[in-house]
Simulated assay, not measured.
Amino acid sequence: MADVRHNWTLEEISEIYHKPLMELVFEAATMHRKYHDPKEVQVSSLISIKTGGCPEDCAYCPQAARYHTDVKVHKLMEVEEVRAQAESAKANGASRMCLGAAWREVRDNKDFDKVLDMVKTVNSMDMEVCCTLGMVSEEQAKRLADAGLFAYNHNIDTSEAFYDDIISTREYDDRLKTIDNVRKAKISVCSGGIIGMGESAEDRMGMLLTLANMDQHPESVPVNALVPVEGTPLAEQPRVAAHELIRMIATARLVMPASVVRLSAGREGMSLTEQALCFMAGANSIFAGDKLLTTPNPDFNDDKEMFDLLGLQPREAFKEVKKETEVEA
Results as ranks from 00 to 15, higher is better:
191 S>I: 09
246 I>W: 00
168 S>R: 10
43 V>H: 01
204 R>Q: 09
20 P>R: 13
40 E>L: 13
16 I>R: 08
164 D>N: 15
95 S>G: 14
149 L>G: 06
97 M>G: 03
245 L>G: 04
267 R>M: 04
225 A>N: 09
46 L>T: 12
156 I>P: 04
5 R>W: 04
307 F>E: 05
67 Y>A: 09
240 V>E: 03
131 C>V: 15
120 K>G: 12
210 T>G: 03
37 D>E: 09
292 L>I: 13
253 R>I: 01
59 A>D: 04
143 R>A: 11
263 L>F: 07
83 R>F: 02
148 G>Q: 09
153 N>Y: 06
181 N>V: 04
56 E>V: 10
162 F>W: 05
88 S>Y: 11
26 F>R: 15
3 D>R: 15
229 V>I: 15
81 E>D: 14
183 R>M: 08
100 G>A: 14
198 G>A: 07
131 C>R: 13
204 R>P: 00
4 V>L: 15
84 A>S: 13
99 L>P: 02
136 V>A: 09
285 S>E: 14
26 F>E: 15
313 Q>P: 01
221 V>H: 05
105 E>G: 07
114 K>F: 00
44 S>M: 12
102 A>H: 07
231 G>D: 08
59 A>V: 06
285 S>K: 00
300 F>V: 08
306 M>N: 11
186 K>P: 03
43 V>C: 09
214 M>T: 13
7 N>P: 01
163 Y>M: 07
186 K>C: 08
273 T>Q: 14
89 A>V: 12
175 R>Q: 05
190 C>P: 06
304 K>N: 14
88 S>N: 09
79 V>N: 04
309 L>H: 13
157 D>M: 08
298 P>V: 06
282 G>R: 02
281 A>M: 01
186 K>F: 07
153 N>F: 05
110 K>I: 14
158 T>Y: 02
61 C>G: 08
2 A>Y: 08
240 V>L: 10
101 A>T: 14
259 S>V: 07
60 Y>I: 12
299 D>Q: 12
38 P>R: 07
62 P>L: 12
266 G>D: 08
8 W>A: 05
310 L>V: 03
283 A>N: 02
80 E>P: 00
83 R>P: 01
119 V>W: 02
274 E>N: 06
296 P>H: 11
155 N>S: 10
235 A>E: 15
88 S>E: 14
112 F>V: 03
51 T>I: 01
61 C>T: 12
12 E>C: 05
220 S>P: 00
233 P>V: 12
180 D>Y: 14
212 A>W: 05
146 D>R: 15
184 K>H: 10
311 G>W: 02
85 Q>C: 08
320 E>K: 15
311 G>K: 06
172 Y>K: 02
86 A>H: 09
152 Y>D: 08
